[in-house]
């Protein structure tokens, strides 16, 4: 009996540990987000938060619905696979509300040279020119139709 008495002071310590463990379990049940673990070791609601971001680029199919004439012209030339927003910038707002949101036409002086100014790192088969020499001070769309720029596909203006 006296041996137990001499160890009795360890009981409050053990009790504190048990209490701590219980409090921890209770805290977890209360505070862990409910959707955690729904799909995996992460908060399931995060997926919905991510997928509900607004679109900024509409995607070329959205444009083609209303602009079939441009699509037809593009399909004949070398820019057939250049998507609309690649040059025209993001247009989801315009696709949502075509009447009130009018897109700004791209700035020809900077747009075309970004792809077509010659650079040793560009693939050799890719059409590239020394812009100053080639354009002689004129804007690219003076001679080239942007939607179908090649002269042999009816692109000359």
């Amino acid at each position: 009996m006296s041996r137990f008495k001499d160890s009795a002071h360890l009981i409050p310590v053990a009790a504190l540990f048990v209490l701590g463990a219980v409090a921890f379990v209770a805290l977890r049940a209360a505070v862990i987000p409910k959707s955690f673990g729904r799909y995996g070791p992460y908060r399931g609601d995060a997926l919905q938060e991510i997928t509900s971001r607004p679109l900024v680029y509409a995607g070329h199919e959205a444009c083609e619905g209303c602009h079939p004439d441009v699509l037809e012209m593009k399909a004949k030339g070398v820019h057939a696979h250049v998507n609309c927003e690649s040059c025209h910038g993001p247009l989801a707002k315009h696709a949502d509300d075509p009447a009130s949101v009018i897109p700004v036409k791209p700035d020809v002086a900077t747009l075309c040279v970004r792809c077509h100014s010659e650079n040793i790192a560009k693939p050799s088969g890719f059409p590239q020119v020394d812009a100053k020499e080639h354009a002689q001070g004129q804007l690219c769309n003076t001679c080239h139709q942007p939607h179908s720029p090649g002269f042999d596909t009816g692109g000359k203006k």
Binding site: I50, T51, S52, R53, P54, L55, V56, Y57, G59, H60, H79, H81, V82, N83, E85, S86, C87, P90, C115, F126
Partner: peptide, 22 residues
């Protein structure tokens, strides 16, 4: 994010959409 908000709706990513040469 691989434009998860786009690919989950059947669209492609913004970078692929904008790339002029494929």
């Amino acid at each position: 994010t691989l434009c998860y908000h786009r690919i989950s709706k059947g669209l492609t990513t913004a970078c692929c959409e904008a790339c002029p040469t494929g």
